[in-house]
């Protein structure tokens, strides 16, 4: 037929899906991708820098301060900020700058440590309970339900009471973790119930991928944004718990300080020496705010559907 002419005349073939390829494969790692997408978001970078600054302050603050947190200046009681005492002093003569630096490092450590530990334990146990169906799920749910009804505040108080001295904060972090994961684990289990029915989880199972690899590679990353928000809010929640316990004299105990204990000291003299309350409050807000920004940035970087980095 003469028609073949027609198809050739002026026809430009559509792009074929596979181009010519020179054989070797170059690729960007997953971590590099996430970092690239994270950095693309300005607010996340601001949050990261803010957190870095706070960490630097907690680490190097005590070194540059004129006074130690545990050496009160009896010649300057309840003084406003000055060249000698940058953030002023408390009614007892303690340097607020030194106190805040020390308290921030304690609160940061307790908050971040216990929040990370809670997320880790909750994610692992929550997904395991959902993934290994059958008797494991039944026993696991029974244990979770039992743990939920234990009055945790009381137990934490009892545990930290028995611990004393400078190691007390570690015990506090551990106690917060021990009773904080149960509720999260239940939430994560419910989310995993729908994840475990997805085809890619089945596909991995049929490929012979081990159960813990499936949990690590498919289940936990797909809970990613939930976990990140949980960790971030967990820091805030842990700092709150720590403050509340410290306020009651059950958390961090003297001579150790935390943001909570300084806040408690400050709120009684808020009218006469407001700087005692102001400085730790500002740092507390900065800490939670930076965590929030980082959390948002990370969620968008990890989530492939997010708008932040379609081109990566």
């Amino acid at each position: 037929m003469a028609d073949t002419e027609l198809t050739l005349a002026g026809a430009t073939a559509p792009d074929v899906v596979a181009d010519e390829h020179d054989g070797d494969l170059h690729r960007t790692g997953r971590l590099a991708l996430i970092v690239r997408r994270f950095v693309r978001r300005p607010s996340a970078v601001v949050g990261a820098f803010l957190l870095l600054f706070l960490i630097a302050f907690a680490v190097f603050g005590p070194m540059v301060a004129n006074w130690g947190y545990d050496e009160p200046d009896f010649l300057a009681l309840a003084q406003a900020p000055s060249a000698e005492h940058w953030f002023g002093t408390t009614t007892g003569g303690s340097d607020v700058f030194a106190l805040v630096a020390r308290g921030l490092s304690r609160s940061l450590l307790i908050g971040v440590l216990s929040s990370l530990a809670i997320t880790f334990v909750a994610a692992l146990l929550g997904t395991m309970v959902a993934f290994f169906e059958g008797w494991f799920e039944r026993v696991g749910m029974w244990v979770l339900d039992t743990l939920l009804v234990i009055p945790s505040f009381l137990l934490i108080a009892m545990i930290t009471r028995s611990a004393s001295g400078k190691g007390g904060w570690l015990v506090l972090a551990a106690a917060l973790t021990a009773f904080g994961w149960v509720g999260y684990a239940r939430v994560l289990r419910t989310l995993t119930l729908s994840l475990r029915e997805l085809d890619y989880v089945h596909a991995a199972k049929y490929m012979g991928v081990g159960p813990f690899t499936i949990i690590r590679r498919h289940l936990i990353p797909n809970l990613g944004s939930v976990l990140i928000i949980q960790t971030v809010l967990g820091v805030v929640a842990a700092v709150n718990s720590e403050t509340a316990l410290s306020f009651l004299g059950l958390g961090v105990k003297a001579p150790d300080v935390s943001l909570g204990t300084i806040l408690q000291a400050g709120q009684s003299v808020v009218l006469t020496s407001p700087w005692v309350l102001l400085a730790p409050s500002l740092f507390l807000v900065a800490l939670t705010f930076s965590m929030q920004l980082i959390g948002d940035g990370l969620r968008d970087a990890i989530d492939p559907y997010s708008r932040s980095g379609g081109k990566a």
Partner: peptide, 18 residues
């Protein structure tokens, strides 16, 4: 020796893995 291809390509690939 035994592999599977599912019906829905949206749900058979983990959206979080390149």
């Amino acid at each position: 020796e035994l592999q599977i291809v599912f019906q829905d390509p949206m749900s058979s690939l983990d959206p979080r893995l390149p």
